[in-house]
Design a protein around this nucleic acid. Structure first.
Lengths: 140, 140
DNA sequence: CTTTCTGCAAAAGCTTTGCATTACA
DNA sequence: TGTAATGCAAAGCTTTTGCAGAAAG
């Protein structure tokens, strides 16, 4: 966690932006949760003093994406934000019945992605893989 | 194309919905385009008589998703709709510099996805894979 | 002290919905 | 001739933006 805060601070310094208690508090809470929405963060921080507005949450989440700590995902109607620094890249299975989200990682798939990219002379910087279907409790 | 119209008609019949000139016209235009937005379809059909409203486009695109002819994708801010019946499933590389979208298909990746799903006792019904980066003309 | 940040409220986009009219079956 | 579909406009949601006051450097 100290590491992530350092990354954020460095990014802020590089862009002549300021370290604020809100930004650090949002990052701290973000790191404790998984594929979170802005709304969820807002509620998680509701008791915080001083009060943190939704606009600040969005602004800070965009900052986190810029410095490589977070990545946006569009599962349903709302945008989810994923921590990609600590756990490394991972992908998702989404149960379309109960909404459960299972995270997984697979190096072989990533390897094949690189191969496909090479065939098209394309340089991958990031990717998103989502499997939709039914989880074990939902397909009887 | 006759095939897709048949699929739509069957879906409509099964659900006691009606065949209309708008629905068939929207499907016909949809099949001619790639990863299209509702807005783009609306403009493509602007000259059509009678005039087709944006709400009808959205309603019909949702129908096409329900009967397996289309799939939603969230590339940027707008939702794109993909034809998944004729070409089978395919995935995308998106150039973050120029916005070019390259389509590809890779059976080996799909094979590995099934394997990962089996490990988690998960049944895949559909998936989305997007590779972000720079295309050949953008990475010098 | 200057410039950035914040919270609030208003605005902006995309998509959905309500309703009167039109059109399918 | 009854029910569903359409077009329009209004509403709904999520996200962004403008602005005056607060805070960082």
């Amino acid at each position: 966690m100290q590491n992530e805060i350092a990354i954020l601070r460095e990014h802020l310094a590089d862009h002549e932006l300021r370290v604020t208690s809100q930004r650090e508090m949002i990052l701290e809470t973000f790191l404790k949760m998984e594929h979170v929405t802005a709304e969820q963060l807002y509620h998680a921080l509701a008791k915080h003093k001083p009060h943190i507005g939704l606009a600040t949450i969005y602004r800070t989440l965009n900052l986190l994406c810029e410095c490589g700590l977070a990545q946006q995902r569009n599962f349903g109607t709302q945008t989810h934000y994923d921590n990609i620094s600590r756990k490394g890249h991972h992908d998702h299975m989404i149960c379309t019945k109960c909404g459960t989200i299972i995270e997984f990682e697979n190096c072989d798939i990533e390897e094949l992605q690189e191969e496909v990219a090479r065939q098209h002379d394309f340089h991958i910087t990031t990717h998103k893989l989502e499997l939709y279907g039914q989880c074990s409790t939902c397909h009887g």
